[in-house]
Every structure is written in structure tokens, then in C-alpha cells.
Design a protein around this nucleic acid. Sequence first.
DNA 1: GTGAAAGCGCTAACAT
DNA 2: ATGTTAGCGCTTTCAC
Lengths: 343, 343
Amino acid sequence: MTAKKITINDVADHAGVSVTTVSLVVSGKGRISPQTSARVQQAIQVLGYVPNRQAVTLRGGRSGVIGLIVRDVCDPFYAEVTAGLSEVLEAQARVLFLTQSGREGLGSLRAAESLLKQGVDGIVLAGNLLHGPDVRQRAAAAGVPLVCAARANALEGMDLVRPDNQLAARLATGHLVTEGHKQIAYVGGAGSSLTRAERLGGFCATLLQYGLPFRPEWVVESEAYRHGMAAKVEALLRRYPQITALVCHDAAVTLGAYFGVLNAGRSVGGQALEGLYSPQVALAGFGEGADDALAELPLTRVSAAGREVGRSAAQRLLQRIEDPEAMPQQWVVAPELIAHAPG
Amino acid sequence: MTAKKITINDVADHAGVSVTTVSLVVSGKGRISPQTSARVQQAIQVLGYVPNRQAVTLRGGRSGVIGLIVRDVCDPFYAEVTAGLSEVLEAQARVLFLTQSGREGLGSLRAAESLLKQGVDGIVLAGNLLHGPDVRQRAAAAGVPLVCAARANALEGMDLVRPDNQLAARLATGHLVTEGHKQIAYVGGAGSSLTRAERLGGFCATLLQYGLPFRPEWVVESEAYRHGMAAKVEALLRRYPQITALVCHDAAVTLGAYFGVLNAGRSVGGQALEGLYSPQVALAGFGEGADDALAELPLTRVSAAGREVGRSAAQRLLQRIEDPEAMPQQWVVAPELIAHAPG
DNA sequence: GTGAAAGCGCTAACAT
DNA sequence: ATGTTAGCGCTTTCAC
């Protein structure tokens, strides 16, 4: 069962033509007579010929390969980005190299090195923006286009695709306001998070837009990231019982907030009751649409549209490959509001 | 800024040696004098020479590339598998081609085709076991080793790495029994799920092992997969109030069960009270360790060890690449019990 | 319309 | 210890 490698020569022999002819038939470039073409096609079928990518690439063509550097594919957002990327590339008959820079990975620069060695046509840097400039320089030196895909940020001079966190927060907050809420808090996220900063901007802007006050003491940071959120939310609600809605930074925070609401003796969901103290607290949270676990809860969710970010990054990269001299652009992907029927 | 490609010839010229010498230095194979070696190394540094993988591969070496076929990288289990795979491969200076077969993907066979065209040294088929035989045949025809990584199953004649679902269920169930529970139900999962079948086996076996009865009516299937689990669990608990513990099929089910318990007027957590009706219901659930959202709940979790499955699959594949004639093996990866302090 | 031949960058005999 | 050289499989002028 040792597979013998079928080359273009074998096909040429079998069809009784020259390798040139076979090459031309395969690529459909030269004009070859229908008969010859047919004979060659048949020989290809019979022999099961598969062109050798390495040889093609070596000869001077593009490799058809795109490299992806991601910190950790298990992060739901970047998993979605990866999936979107892969979708688009596969549709283009391209393939995707996956390298992880974080956790046990080799660091984004080494990952880039590794990708360049493989002769990729382009690189997508997902997250890892700290090392963006290094990777950028390395890619530029090799003449390989680079596009970033991230949750947030503002690296100048690079192509960057990211979700519109500000809009996401506006959608979430606006939805709550529309439901009648006037006392809304933002809970969760690390103070150093850029994503959070952008969202807070949208949160704040929306409040002001509706003539509602922005109260800094109603913005709660989560320090250990996913710990004790329930207690914090409970404390917040006990101190400020007038709060009727929470905007939650991520899935973990949302769940923590959920229990915090319950522990505070309130219930979750629904619209605000005009002018009255409401026992209910409405929740709106950010996260990927795919957060199955929370799907059943009565809350409004805003997806960061990771998949779309991935798709767009792929598009942009393909553009850059076509036109390497193009000016860097920032693409912002609109989030998606998944409103839950008020109950 | 158009990068001129530095080849081995440039290095040879710059160092005043022949290409052979450079090649030997790079690969560390022939014995070359320290001085020459140093000169070559320096030339490499100065010029920024990066060996061209395509050329190496074309010449006859291995491509150093492994292909992965996965239905959907966003599935947490397979994301972990992917990560584990990537870790090991990167440590071996290899890279990973990612193709998605499901969702918008091209189907596992087409994915395999695409990978083979790229000249991969081996393929990992993650999930998609339905198409296993086809892919296997295709890979065999190309003389490329294939290893499967999956949640469950028993494909004969193929290398397969999977989590030990039975053991996982034994761990979860055993833990509950050790905590004093005698009335335990299994909730969630589709009836057609192989993973679930394996887990039920372990569940049942553990009950019998401890002399506890296995009651089929305490096994609840989730039809629409993630819907209405709370109601089902509530109904179960109301009908059989003697139940004090639940084994939950996945993260979504666990959360549903959590609310089901609350809705039934019980509380979640802790040990069984000897011989008494317990208002508390203990929960044990399966899932990846990374299910952040649930991390704060008082429940016992058993991880399917996806990352370890990925690592093992990589190991196995590397073995197969070394020894293509080896007999197929099934590797089973032990799950990990993450007990929660009883409260 | 089709073929002959020159490499792409690299490795591995085979010289020296 | 190093250099010469013949390809790996393919595309692409340039002939015919």
C-alpha cells in the first residue's frame, strides 16, 4: 500500500504528450486542442494525479497558505475568529496554518517566524497586539501582508479588524433604556481592559443621550476576573436598591450577576415598572452568541461577532495580498443584539 | 521595502563557501570546522536567511506539516483538542494546518483532499467519525498516517484517541456516593449520543458497585439539547423528592439543572444528610475545565481532558509517522475530577 | 497547438 | 573538511 507518487511526468507519458501540455491543461492557460486536453484529463483521472503544491510554490507561485497567530484557540472569541477565517479561506481554496502564541505557545514573534518559513502568503495576528509592531516589522521584512484581528485597540499604521465595542455597549444599554430602565450599572471586567474601556464609553454615551446620569460608583470592576462577582453585585444592589438593570462584561460575570441578583432578594428579567421600585433586575451581557450555557436565561445578549471579525480579516488580507501597497485600514464589525422576550 | 529573497546561495557567497557547507551548517549534519561554521552562521544572521520549506520538502524531506480536520473549532472540546495538538507540534517545530469540515466547511473528505494536496506528513481527524473510513482510505492511498481524536466511539482498525467517558462517569458518580448520596439521577444528553451511552455505562456500573439501584426513570434525556432542562429537572425532583444528587451531561445541562433544583424549592450543593430528607441537591457535571461561567457554582466537575486528547493524538501521529506499519491502537485519556469543597 | 529546456531553493551522493 | 553536481515537480519562455 505504499503510495507511489504520481508526477506530471507520469501523466505526460501516459497521455503521450509533453509535460508542458499537461501543465497547460491543468492550469487551463495555453490553448490546447480539445482532443489532447481530453486525453490528458483522462490520464490524470486514471493515475490519480495530484499536483505537488511545494513544487508549484517553489517555482514561483503563491503558496495559497495563510498563517494565523492566536494566543489561545480556546478563547471563545478567538475560536470564532478562527472559524470565520477558515470559512472564507476554504471558499478560496486556500488553507490556514494555525499557531498559538500564548499559554504553552511560542510567542507571537516566533510563531510569525515559523509561518514565514513555511512561505505563507499572508498572516493574521489575532490578539497579541502588544507584539504587533514586532510581528509587523518581521512580516514587512519578508514582504508578507499582515492583518490584525482583535477585541479592541488602536494600533496605528496596521490593518486591524475588530468588533465595535462602543456600539455593542450602546445597543445593550439602549435596549435596557427602551425597556424603561433608568438606573443601570455596568459590572465586571478588569480596569486595564481596553475592550471594557470602549464599552464603558458606549455605556456612558447612551446614558447621557437619554438624559440619564452616569454614576461612577455604579461601575464595578471584577478583580480576579471571575471571582466573587455574585457577592459584589449583591452588595451593589443592597446599597443602591434603585438599580433595575445591569450591563455585564462577559458570560462569567453575567452568571455571577445573576446569582448576585437572586442573593439580594430580587429576581431577574423583564421591564422596569414605571416609577416604582422593581423587584426585578434586568440583565444584558456581552459574549459570543455560542455561550450555550446561558442561552436559557432571561437576558439580553450582545455578541461580539467574532466569526464576522474573522471573515472580515480574511477579506482584508486577501485584498492586501492583491495590492500590497494599499494603505492600512481599520475595519469595525457591528455587534449583534439578541434581545430576549421580556418576562 | 520589497523583500529580496535570501537563498542559500547568497549565504554561501557572503561566507565564501559552497552551498553544501551552508546546508550542512544549517542542518548540523556534516562535520564542519568551527571557524567555517561560525562564518556561515554570521552570514545567515547578517543576511537574515530563512530556509525555504518548499524547497526542502520538494527535495524529499518531510514537510513538517500536520493537517487537522475538525467539524467546528468553536466546540469547546475540539478547541481544546486543537490547542493540545498545536502545543505538541510546535514543540516539535512542526506546524498545523487547520481545516473545518462542518458548518460552512467543506466536508471531511474534501478537507482531507485539500490537506493531502498540501503535502502534509500526517492527518488528525477530530470528530467526524462518520466519514472516518472514507478519509482513512484516502489517506492510506496517499501513504499518509491518520489518527482520529474524538469524544467517543469505536471505529475498528484506526488509531483513535478519546476521553474515557466511562471512567469520567465513575469518577463523578463515585464522588457523589462518597459524599453520602444514594439517590442519584443522570440528566441531559441526546439519546443517540455515544458519549452519553458510555457515561451511562460508568454511571450504572458505579451505582451497582456500591449496591445502589439503577432506576431508568431517573435518567432524563434532553431532546432539543439545551432547552427546557430546568423544567425537566424540576419535574423530576418533584416526582422523586428522594433524589439528592444529579449527574449532568454538559455545561448547559448543568446550569439548567441548577435552576431546576432551585425551582423545585431545593438548594444546590453539599453532602447528603445521613438517612434524612435533604433540602440540598448536589450537582456533578461534565465539561471542559475551561467553562469559566460555571466555575463559581458549588458543583463537582469532570473534565473531558480535551487538551490531553489533543496532545496524545499528536504523540500518536508522530509515532505513526516514524513507523507507518505500526498496528492501529486506541488510546484512552483519563478525565480529571475537579471536586468542589462541599458547602 | 505542442515540445525542449531552464531554473525555483534545497539536499545528498560523489568527488577532492 | 569542503566543493560539484544532479535532480525533487513544476511553470514558463522560446522554439518549432
